[in-house]
């Protein structure tokens, strides 16, 4: 277990009136509607803790986050400051307005009990996974397996090398590092505080996340 000494709960990356301030326990899920214009700061409290994230238009969840639209519109595989997080219709859902690590990931997808069997073997089938979190958190909003698409991974590091080799490697984050995303419309945000114990996406040590929404 990480000692409390190594946790940095930090503060909002963008100033404003705090409208929501939640702490997400290790391995747990979280969701909230972030209103248009509000800014969500996600704090990597323990350092190198992947926050798997899906976005939906709160008024019509058939419109949801789209990795390929986000990447094609910006012409780049990585998420950084000013990246517009686009929907499957090509519309902006949120925009990255602050980011304290080199790049954020959106190509690595979410872990699951099923994919863990491919990556590590059937002996880890019993482990918890982000897809499990997305299903239980999504169910609170009427969302199911049909609504799970490729996601964002805040604070996770997935480089693509020259020959196409790709993988989750040691993170570039640290306790208290933050990312801030502004809602461009009312957005339902689902987060899985990644429980993965078989790769470095959580430094092999799941830690909390802090979710702060401000009205600037």
């Amino acid at each position: 277990m990480t000692s409390t000494m190594s946790l940095d709960w930090s503060e909002p990356l963008v100033p404003g009136e705090v409208v929501l301030d939640d702490r997400v326990a290790p391995n747990a899920s979280w969701s909230a509607v972030v209103r248009a214009g509000h800014v969500l700061t996600i704090v990597d409290v323990g350092g190198n803790q992947s926050g798997d994230c899906l976005l939906y238009n709160a008024a019509d969840t058939e419109e949801r986050y789209s990795v390929p639209d986000t990447l094609a519109w910006q012409g780049n595989a990585y998420v950084r400051t000013d990246t517009v997080l686009r929907s499957n219709l090509g519309n902006p859902l949120m925009t990255v307005v602050g980011n304290e690590i080199d790049r954020q990931d959106t190509i690595g997808g979410a872990c699951s009990k099923e994919s863990n069997t491919l990556r590590y073997g059937h002996h880890v089938m019993f482990h918890h996974g982000c897809r499990e979190n997305f299903l239980s958190e999504g169910a609170k909003h009427g969302l199911g397996l049909r609504d799970l698409v490729s996601n964002l991974n805040w604070f996770m590091n997935v480089p693509v090398e020259a020959d196409g080799a790709l993988g989750i490697v040691d993170g570039m984050s640290a306790p208290g590092k933050r990312v801030a995303v502004r809602a461009d419309t009312d957005v339902l945000v689902l987060v899985s505080n990644c429980p993965q114990m078989n790769n470095p996406c959580n430094d092999f040590n799941p830690t909390p996340l802090r979710m702060i929404v401000v009205s600037p």
Partner: peptide
Amino acid sequence: NVADTVKIPWQAYLGAGHPLLSGDG
């Protein structure tokens, strides 16, 4: 599941031998 399709083979570029994976492993 495109993410699993590139992540699990450790390879982003599609070619012969590459599996198209579902989200169900």
